[in-house]
Design a protein around this nucleic acid. Structure first.
Lengths: 230, 230
DNA sequence: ACGTGCTTGTGAAAGCACGCACAAAGTGGG
DNA sequence: CCCACTTTGTGCGTGCTTTCACAAGCACGT
């Protein structure tokens, strides 16, 4: 907002930082909704649940967007992080598997404020195909390739049972989708150049159980809190 | 199965390893279902999507459960990992927020084969309270404390809208729950000694978008695939 | 009984990530 | 104009993670 950034970035943001940027972004949006115009690293770090030095180092990877003695301008920083994450363009998302989880995803309107548009819902069950979910018509899985092409889908979400996941993934890849978010409890096999991220409910529970057990039998010392899925 | 483990473990499994154990466990169960009795580190690593040296080092933290020249006995290793993760005991789980996501979680029967029992479903909406979901009666959120006590709930799952999440978390903590799995898009504030893990759909999408953008504009070199949520 | 072949378990090195602590830089008051 | 105060950006030490490479160990055939 002040002047044009001299050197926007120089290729090479650490993976750990990338994983935290969305958290900062959300905290910033909350602040903006409250009418806050400026925030210090300390304040933002508190809202995001991280150390302030870590926050500053993370932000320094995108450029020098703060003002010493003052802090960061909320609106400007939102824009810079959004741009870095690629949210200034629209991403077209297709969800396969319209069970409870698929429906939850489809109805989860606020996908990081904007940047993501759910372009299609697909399922194999003839009972589900043809229904309307989140004001979208559920189409049959056989039309996956056609849908990807016509809607320009660039991100595929897999919310099917484990058994069907690999097949769907392969079809996504075949159709040219190179970003996949997998909710099915299987390890997907994809060629190089395809980016797969996995979200697994039972894995998270198992990690919690491990720490709970550790606290229970070892006992004595408490465990650090605020663990994040990074 | 052979002989009793001499030194089961010696307190201090790296966090990164703990996060991968559930993945190994699932891969092992898949192998067992196929009737495989023995597997090499190479084979298991392939099924779990990791480097075989990493797998061996991970397993070495639990003890020496392999046989050189042969590999690991599937059944025995399943038992050891389950025990380490604390899955040999039963964990009682309560889910708050029975929207689409809450229902998806409630119906997701195969919680890592076993170890987790969904003990209660809670919601604030009078429209939902009293209904039956996954053969459980949905109770009102006001009975949270009573339910935690009577059912011995040790893990709380929050699947509410963001606005209600902190309140629910505080009530869980107040009631003595020290493990929380949070699906709401907010940073929870909890005292030390409480373990919070967060699963956030839109954060995962944003990370995918970042890599996709990077591939698109920078282009040239492909990006490593098979990223996991660790 | 012994050698061959395969696989584990682990020392060592390289790479990352985190957090402290401070210099650099900007603001505002006098 | 200068000084005191605030907050950013970062150099550096520390500890964790990953990967390589190989010695140690076990099974099996002869």
């Amino acid at each position: 907002m002040t002047s044009r950034p001299p050197r926007p970035r120089e290729r090479g943001i650490p993976e750990a930082t990338v994983a935290r940027l969305p958290v900062y972004l959300r905290a910033l949006q909350t602040l903006q909704d409250r009418g806050t115009a400026t925030v210090s690293s300390e304040g933002l770090a508190g809202a995001a649940g991280v150390n302030s030095a870590k926050l500053r180092k993370d932000l320094s990877h995108l450029g020098s967007y703060g003002t010493r003695g003052v802090g960061y301008e909320v609106e400007y920083l939102i824009y810079q992080i959004s741009r870095e994450l690629g949210l200034t363009q629209d991403w077209s998302v297709a969800i396969v598997g319209i069970g409870n989880l698929g429906r939850a995803l489809a109805n989860y309107g606020g996908f990081g404020t904007r940047g993501f548009r759910i372009a299609a819902l697909l399922d194999a069950d003839p009972e589900v195909v043809g229904r309307t979910v989140a004001s979208l018509n559920v189409r049959h899985i056989d039309s996956l390739e056609e849908v990807v092409r016509s809607k320009g889908v660039s991100i595929g979400v897999i919310a099917t049972p484990g058994g069907s996941a690999q097949g769907v993934a392969s079809r996504f890849v075949e159709a040219g989708v190179t970003s996949i978010l997998n909710f099915a409890p299987v390890v997907l096999n994809v060629p190089d150049g395809v980016d797969v991220r996995k979200v697994d409910l039972s894995i998270e529970l198992q990690i919690l159980a491990f720490h709970a057990q550790r606290r229970a039998d070892g006992d004595g010392h408490a465990h650090r809190s605020g663990l994040e899925v990074t």
